[in-house]
Computed example of a mutant assay.
Amino acid sequence: MGGPVTLTDTFGRVHRDLRISLTDRCSLRCTYCMPAEGVPWLQKDSLLTTEEIVRVARVAVEAGVSTLRLTGGEPLLRPDVVDVVSRLSTLIGPDGPPEISLTTNALALPRLAQPLVEAGLTRVNISLDTLRQDRFVALTRRDRLDDTLAGIDAAVGARLAPVKINTVVMRGRNDDEIVDLAEFAAERGLHLRFIEQMPLDAGHTWDRGTMVEAEEILAALTSRWELTEMPGRGADPAQTWLLDGGPTTIGVIASVTRPFCGACDRIRLTADGQLRACLFARTETDVLSVLRSGASDAEIDAAIRRCLLGKKAGHDIDDPGFLQPSRPMSAIGG
Rank of each mutant, 00 (worst) to 15 (best):
H15W: 01
V61A: 01
L77R: 01
L218Y: 03
S89N: 14
T130Q: 05
D272F: 12
N105K: 06
R171C: 11
V14S: 13
K312M: 11
R173V: 11
N125I: 10
G157R: 04
G151S: 02
V290G: 02
D17A: 06
I253Q: 03
A138R: 13
S330F: 08
K44M: 15
V179T: 14
T285K: 05
V169Q: 08
E37Q: 14
A202K: 01
R142D: 05
I300S: 08
L291K: 08
D180R: 08
T122I: 08
P98H: 06
K311W: 06
A119I: 13
L91P: 00
P237T: 10
V168P: 00
A263H: 12
P231A: 13
G189Q: 13
I317F: 14
G251F: 05
L18H: 01
A277W: 09
V65M: 05
G234R: 10
G151N: 04
R171E: 11
A185S: 12
A63H: 01
D153K: 09
V124Y: 02
A281N: 06
A155Y: 01
L131N: 08
H204P: 03
R123Y: 02
D297E: 12
L42P: 03
A303G: 08
L70G: 00
R305V: 10
S289M: 13
G12D: 01
